[in-house]
Design a protein around this nucleic acid. Sequence first.
DNA 1: TCCAGATTGGAATTGACTTTCCAATCTCGC
DNA 2: GCGAGATTGGAAAGTCAATTCCAATCTGGA
Lengths: 219, 219
Amino acid sequence: MKTSGVEPQAKAASTEGGRRTRDRILQAAAELMFKQGVAGTSIPDVQRSARVSASQIYHYFGDKKGLTAAVIEYQNTVKLEQQRPLLDHLDSIDALREWCERAAVRLDAVHCAGGCEIGSLASELSDIDPSARLGLATGFAAWQAAIESGLTRMRERGDLGADEDVSALAVALLAAIQGGMLLSQVNQDATPYRRAVNVVIDHIADRVAAAQASPSTSR
Amino acid sequence: MKTSGVEPQAKAASTEGGRRTRDRILQAAAELMFKQGVAGTSIPDVQRSARVSASQIYHYFGDKKGLTAAVIEYQNTVKLEQQRPLLDHLDSIDALREWCERAAVRLDAVHCAGGCEIGSLASELSDIDPSARLGLATGFAAWQAAIESGLTRMRERGDLGADEDVSALAVALLAAIQGGMLLSQVNQDATPYRRAVNVVIDHIADRVAAAQASPSTSR
DNA sequence: TCCAGATTGGAATTGACTTTCCAATCTCGC
DNA sequence: GCGAGATTGGAAAGTCAATTCCAATCTGGA
């Protein structure tokens, strides 16, 4: 029962070396929490992996909750930046397929371990850490926005009918990605992910074909 | 580093009272692990909730891993049985919608807490407990089979074209359910789930319409 | 160069959890 | 009614994690 909202002080790094150790901690924590879950990652684990002492972690992040929050923000920005070139041009069926397939290749590479960086954290933390839930919702919103923005461009261009609910389509694709990754993780095989994603993209493609058949006509 | 595969002895209940306490433990553990995660559920937690002593838990389940395995099997059978009447007749668009909407109503009722019983466990355990992963894969396979069996009947009946990949469609629907529930959990709002699921069902409905338009013709 | 503040190492505290153990009690077939 | 085995309570060992604390060292600006 923690009633006071006061969180342990987390000091910002003001020296070059400080910034580097802070980054080292963040990267190590992100990787460990992704692979073993937040609960399965102890501070000593992070110490060993980042080669730092306990003081440093508590100095820069306050407590484990603060470290977790930082990891969420880190994943939100890093994963998004990593895919920036592709993410900004999800405005064709081919681009969507290419983007999803790239994730599939990554799944193959790691034998489907871990699933999605944000999805795993979301499933573990949503119900037990309200502020973490907020951060994760923000992350998902960014992904949804990227997809939706591409679809919207397709609609403006006339590839999709003016009455298409691009928001719903974007959510459906994001859900297919998350659910597909979960199924692939459990089965240790990327096939379920590929199938789930392809069905949704097929559906979007069908809508494009329909728009082509009767341009500028709303049902 | 546990090298020996010997697991702690878990004795079966041979008396009526024994069976009842075993059930009580199982139910309490299942609920707690669903709401707080496996790692977030301690043996003392289960003791309090089921009103038993530690001996009883270790007597019937050997250790925490054994208890977790029992919970997975319990969820696999219970959740499936709960939906039996509907699950056996997923052979029409309406039936699919009705089934998915029932889950949506349940999400509304609990404010989207927890997501899917099996999905949550899967995300947490897949990468860290191989035998748990196996049990969860079995559970998902049962769900997929139920959906696929309904779609197959639709295909045999001619509602779906003979060339439809019902297996892929079933996986896509299952992924939409899982991914949709995750997004709804994070956003504390059942809308993402409804949208994701409806898009996939819309797609299946389109296929049905296509089959109706050109019966017995394979593209 | 010099100092205030940043950074770091490592020990110590506190608490919780898993698991084991043993003695007591109960149950059921004979 | 009796005894073997099932069931139960509760204490206790052993482990490990989260966090705090303090003293030592380093760094960048005046």
